[in-house]
Amino acid sequence: MSITFPRPMPEAGAAREVFELRRRDFLSPETGGRVGSIAVGPPVWTAEWSLGQGGPRRADEWVAFVDSLDGSSRLFVGRDLSRPYPLAYQDTQLGGLTRAAGGAFNGAASAWSIDTDAAGAPILVLAGLPANFKLSRRDYVGFRWTTEGVERRALVRLVDDYTGTGEGYALLPIRPAVPSVVPPTAVAHFDLPGCLMRLIPERTTIGAKDRRLAPAVTVAAVQELLP
């Protein structure tokens, strides 16, 4: 059986998780007391997962996953395992919902665009959602598309609670802004949102086995933005 990439990551077993943005900013203090901020690149998602007491079979899954990535050579789809669906729909996994305009909701918006608020902060505009679709701060919106037949992913996160309109529209305050590599044809979705990531080999470790013969596993990764 051949393994395809980007590879999905294991869905369970992590006892500790870090999934946060890393910004590439520098402060530029001025003699008058003002402090400027200079961004030298887009923010990217970084992650670290540490295995819990799942036993040797769960550890086998994570070790095999790490082995298959050949260090940092292979891409995988990294996710915040604590938020596979919007908070309000974690139990139902978005099942049983219908679009406000009619038809079953498959977890994806029918259309999206980018706007900004009065302060210039990014706003993601979505259409084709269920009526009064409820979203919470720290929910994610994923983007998926293909480039020459190869899967691509990107990810943004809500910074405030929001309830969509009865007509299925939403204007979401997000961070980061939708990356420039995301094409207009990408699908914006709420089911298992993730981004392309590579392992950080020096921080990814397979440690000693415990009495159950389950090794300690820590997996660290950083996002890669690809068109």
Rank of each mutant, 00 (worst) to 15 (best):
P173V: 07
A131F: 07
R198A: 08
G142W: 04
I200C: 08
T146C: 09
V141N: 07
L158T: 11
G128N: 06
P184A: 09
A109G: 10
R175V: 12
G96T: 05
Y162R: 11
I114W: 01
R203G: 00
P122M: 03
G166M: 05
S136Y: 14
K134S: 14
W145Q: 08
D161N: 15
L97Y: 00
G164Y: 05
T147G: 10
G96R: 08
R152L: 10
S180P: 03
H189N: 07
P130R: 13
R152W: 08
A111K: 06
P122F: 04
G95W: 01
F190R: 02
G96A: 15
L199I: 11
T147F: 02
A177E: 15
R99G: 12
L155E: 00
V150F: 12
A118E: 14
Q93P: 01
V156E: 00
L129F: 04
G166P: 02
Q90L: 15
L196S: 07
E151F: 09
V187Q: 07
Y140M: 12
T163S: 11
G194S: 00
V159M: 12
G128W: 03
T146K: 12
E167R: 08
D91T: 13
D191F: 04
K134T: 14
Y162N: 12
A177H: 13
A121V: 00
K134D: 14
L172V: 07
F133E: 04
E202D: 13
L172N: 05
M197A: 11
T92A: 15
L129T: 06
A170M: 04
E151L: 14
D161V: 05
T163K: 03
D91Q: 14
V125T: 09
G194Q: 00
L97C: 03
G142Q: 06
A119R: 13
G95R: 11
A188D: 07
R137D: 14
L199S: 01
E167G: 10
T116M: 04
V182I: 08
A119P: 01
V181K: 00
R175A: 15
S110V: 06
G142L: 06
T92Y: 05
L196C: 03
N132H: 06
A119K: 10
V159E: 14
I174H: 13
T185Q: 12
L171A: 15
Y169I: 03
T165I: 09
A170Q: 06
G96C: 10
G168H: 08
C195I: 05
L124G: 06
G128E: 07
F143C: 02
G194A: 00
Y169L: 14
I123Q: 13
G95P: 04
P176W: 06
